[in-house]
Design a protein around this nucleic acid. Structure first.
Lengths: 134, 134
DNA sequence: CCGTATCCTAATAGATACTG
DNA sequence: CAGTATCTATTAGGATACGG
């Protein structure tokens, strides 16, 4: 690897894969499934605000990508159980690192946001942007 | 947290923060900025397919969250330099872990997808697949 | 050069009704 | 229970045009 900066091309596999796994619900679904298999509505109850449609789509994508397996239990009414796969479990390591980072830096990000938003407010006059020391 | 499965509530700070950082371009922008400061159009050239609008929005959010700093150099025409902050740099560790996971498991995910997509095709009357272009 | 503003279209989310 | 189907509303994305 040279010292050149990386260029991200459109068909870069990592880009395509990132779009698959970094969606709104996947990380939470995998976390919820970590302790063991779970049925659809049980998962749903753990994710406040998710709609049935959104969860279905998310679970389909996770299944398609091999991160979750789906098992239909032929009772009546039908029961469907979702289970995290070995592959899905392996993804949890980077996810947990990201989660830990978020917990560690919540206040710092919040503070940055507060400062940024404040900077925008007072500008009733000609607010020439002052180069920050950062 | 107890042994109970976690329930993700809507105002969970980690959820809100995740939505901020797990967007389409942030991870790539931070990676590109890693070696040192860079100007707007230079960043743009490194991210194939990004529009000016999308990159502007992404950089604003990164700046607001304290992950990137923005410095206007008052020459004519104006030059603007973006630099990754210490906070942004710290986020690179979990990002790199995620990136490494993707590289490690590209084939495995691809294979899972192939199997899943194959499974969906039958049902049009025959057990035998008609070879498709894909 | 580095944006913002505008317009337009495409994609997504949400609500609701329905089925095995 | 676990979806699918459908419709609508809101949003996101892309293409200019323009300004400091």
């Amino acid at each position: 690897m040279s010292c050149e900066r990386q260029r991200f091309v459109v068909d870069c596999p990592s880009r395509l894969l990132f779009d698959q796994i970094a969606d709104k619900w996947s990380m939470m679904v995998l976390t919820v499934l970590d302790p063991g298999p779970m049925r659809f509505n049980a998962i749903k109850r753990h994710l406040e605000g998710v709609t049935q449609k959104a969860l279905t789509q998310c679970l389909r994508r996770l299944e398609r990508n091999g991160l979750v397996s789906r098992r239909v239990i032929p009772v009546s009414p039908v029961a469907v159980e979702y289970e995290i796969t070995r592959l899905g479990r392996s993804l949890q390591h980077p996810f947990k690192a990201l989660y830990a980072w978020m917990l560690d830096h919540l206040e710092e990000v919040d503070e940055a946001r507060r400062i940024f938003d404040e900077r925008g407010l007072p500008g009733s006059g000609t607010d020439f942007r002052i180069p920050t020391t950062s």
